[in-house]
Design a protein around this nucleic acid. Sequence first.
RNA 1: GGAGCCAUCGCCAAGUUGGUAAGGCCGUAGAUUGCAAAUCUGCUAUUCACCAGUUCGAGUCUGGUUGGCUCCUCCA
Length: 466
Amino acid sequence: MQLYDSVRKTKVPFEPIHAGEASIYVCGPTVYDDAHLGHARSSLAFDLLSRILKALGYKVTMAKNFTDIDDKIIKKVEATGKSMEEITSFYIERYLDEMQALGVQRADIEPKATESLQAIESMIQKLIDKDCAYIVNNGDVYFDTSKDTHYGEISHRVADDEETQSRVEHISEKRNPKDFALWKACKGEEDICFNTPFSKGRPGWHIECSAMIEKYFKGTEEYSIDIHGGGADLLFPHHENEAAQSRCATGHELAKYWMHNGFVQIDGEKMSKSLGNSFFLKDALKVYDGEVLRYYLNSVHYRNDFNFNEEDLLTAKKRLDKLYRLKKRVSPGKGSMVNKNFKQVLLDAMSDDLNISTALAVIDEMIANTNDTLDANPKDKSLKKETIANIEFMETLLGFGGKEPFSYFQIGVDDALKEKIEVLVAERIEAKKTKDFIRSDTIRDELIAMGISLMDTADGTVWEKI
RNA sequence: GGAGCCAUCGCCAAGUUGGUAAGGCCGUAGAUUGCAAAUCUGCUAUUCACCAGUUCGAGUCUGGUUGGCUCCUCCA
């Protein structure tokens, strides 16, 4: 397995800290609002990684956190009058539902900041004890970046404190401009805060991830986990800060490999809440099938930026349709053995830093070859069985193609419509028998107007929702 | 102001250690079909934003130009 490591900026062989095991921690969402396509892409990218590692025989432990203590959540509490717990549990549930619709496997560990306060507090205390952090007058605790000689090595940002070109105004109480808050003291009466020896307050964002990783993973002398992932925007400052804290608190590095996924863009621009061009998953799922979205969002290499548009999505759907038509052709039945070569070539492609494009090309080739053979010999039972097995393997590996093929082509068709279609199709078959082609073509046009496409095959007439 | 990424056919998109351009969509010609649809087959980039350089040889390496994006602020 070769992975692109964002820190070394090159593909490197994956050599886990414990042989045969892979520990992955991905930065999850802050649960104060609905998930958008960007969350989906990140989730999908690391879901793919986890599936590939599993297929290669690794025992994968995947963690994805929920940041459920945050300024934005507190703002939402103030705005809605609801409790913090009400808000966060609502969005967590919705997030999980949506990810399920996309075929994302649940993480093995889903830590929440609220459930990790003990770990957070003790890590901050450790940093204070080691003189890597300091408390200022109002009770805030800051990490002292000058104490970490390796600060900047994750994001390759030189710690040039002289040159403070940052657009941010710096709080004067910080010793260095790059220092960041580990703990924020509470400001008012109704503020949400927790008691600690250093002050009443709440954790900063960065420390949450570091503490949760320490809490849930055993690690080694050298590293806490194998792979740390997240969106490309987290590289700095979030991951840089995480790495610094963990290094200072534990004496070892946080992760052996760092992976970052590219952005989803709308009209060539990063999708973000501040730009107001967010495309929420809940809206996308109303219009498109989750599996199609998955196929589409995963069809571009995870590190590239992804420009979302409907035309490309429809193209991706056409490609997926072909797979399901083949599945329809070889169903029903039990699969035999996966074609060895197919399996190997697919695994090879995905083992190369998740080269999905090559993998999809391999699948398209398998589809064409199988159709070709089936055209020549429609009753090739062993090929049908092998194809079923191939598709099953592919589904486990990549997470699409698992639906029952006939129902796939009927997504969005209710029972009443279905009955109507069946009646028309039967009527058309009768008309065809008597060679009344005018009548049969009229019926076909009628169905097309309803968004239904017909196919006369050797096994009879089948229909698809377009 | 500082840091980084990217630029391959009409569209989407592979192409690690330099060796002579995958795949999909669209288009087109044919097989098949009552006609379609589906399926299959053939065709569709002497060329990889541009300009120099290194090399026997560069999409792949070096330098520069242009264009796009991102990070430095919460952010997947």
